[in-house]
């Protein structure tokens, strides 16, 4: 594959309303490509690994900007940048989990232009797929990563159905932990999907990472008040501390009363194609003291059902250790 490294000849639409954007998206369907910050767009296009015919630039839609307080929590416009998430007082004050996750995305330069919507809707991590090979996820009929000698160090431990790529999103697991709601607009109507159901695995739809259909736009993310000011834990382990995808990340939100965990949401990133809700852990720690002993008792549950590949066994102790930290509450 030659490296092209220039944009292909393609159309550009710059709508200023959601309705217009959705109309254009519907018109072009799979031939169109929504772009916000563009951080998971231009590489695909310059490599000719994806070949849409038109770009639909959403940056002119003012209604998709800003962070607002609502009756039940907050609403984050889809175009809010990751840097804004790390500095906005509503986020840092009440939902520091999201601020921390956003602050660990890629690099400062990418966070300055990358958006919350782009971060959750970005494509998966698999170097074969991102190289432009025509694998299952690209609509092909095989996987190059999960093979006897496949180089799959970064790949999935769980729920790999033919495709073993993992979610690359740092904010996705945090939003699932916060029980966020994703607001999806199709131009005429709006539907709201929980963050947990927003992401889809390869068993359901091997060529997409979210429930978004052609013609639909993620316009906002709502975070309910339920988890405001809860006890949070976020940690991302990547090879490098900047400009790197997670090897494994953990996002946790807990309600703790007198040292006892009343309710919790634990979600791991980079262990399967979607954020992985650790409901067994959540059940196991309910009503238990938030301490090292509880953490030691439950952490191993996190890796039950893992199916490691050739080079990713290390993710099992790593996931277990990060769960342990999240439950005990410190590194």
């Amino acid at each position: 594959m030659s490296s092209h490294d220039v944009m292909p000849d393609m159309g550009l639409y710059q709508p200023v309303t959601v309705e217009d954007a959705a109309g254009i998206a519907r018109q072009f369907s799979t031939r169109g490509w929504l772009v916000g910050g563009g951080q998971d767009t231009y590489g695909w296009l310059k490599d000719r690994a994806k070949r849409p015919e038109v770009l639909i630039d959403l940056k002119g839609i003012e209604s998709m900007r800003g962070i607002r307080e609502t009756a039940d929590g907050i609403e984050i416009g889809a175009l809010v940048t990751l840097t804004e998430l790390t500095t906005n007082s509503l986020i840092t004050g009440r939902y520091s989990l999201l601020a921390e996750a956003a602050g660990r995305v890629a690099s400062p330069q990418i966070r300055n232009v990358g958006t919350i919507a782009g971060n959750v809707a970005q494509d998966v991590r698999c170097w074969y797929y991102r190289r432009g090979l025509n694998c299952y996820r690209a609509g092909g009929n095989l996987c190059y990563a999960d093979t006897p000698e496949g180089m799959n160090r970064e790949h999935a431990l769980f729920n790999a159905s033919r495709c073993v790529a993992v979610t690359a999103s740092d904010t996705g697991p945090a939003l699932v932990a916060l029980e966020a709601q994703m607001v999806i607009h199709n131009g005429s109507s709006e539907r709201v999907v929980s963050a947990e159901n927003f992401f889809v695995g390869p068993n359901i739809d091997i060529t997409h990472t979210t429930v978004l259909r052609p013609g639909e736009i993620l316009t906002a993310v709502r975070i309910p008040a339920k988890w405001a000011n809860a006890e949070f834990y976020f940690e991302k382990v990547a090879d490098r501390n900047v400009w790197d995808f997670a090897l494994v990340s953990i996002s946790a939100a807990m309600r703790v009363n007198n040292g006892v965990i009343e309710e919790s949401r634990l979600v791991a990133g980079a262990v399967e194609a979607t954020p992985r809700r650790l409901d067994r852990i959540e059940q196991a720690i309910r009503g238990k003291a938030r301490n090292q002993q509880t953490a030691d008792e439950v952490a191993a549950l996190a890796i039950q059902g893992a199916r490691p590949l050739n080079f990713n066994h290390f993710k099992m102790p790593l996931l277990e250790n990060l769960v342990n930290r999240a439950v005990r509450g410190h590194a």
């Binding site: 690099s107 170097w127 074969y128 190289r131 190059y144 093979t147 006897p148 000698e149 496949g150 180089m151 090879d239 490098r240 501390n241 900047v242 400009w243 790197d244």
Partner: peptide, 20 residues
Amino acid sequence: YDPQNGLPANVGLYQAKPPT
């Protein structure tokens, strides 16, 4: 390198991972 097809896994600068 993937020994099955001779493809390099870390062509890009971010994949090559010089320290940050």
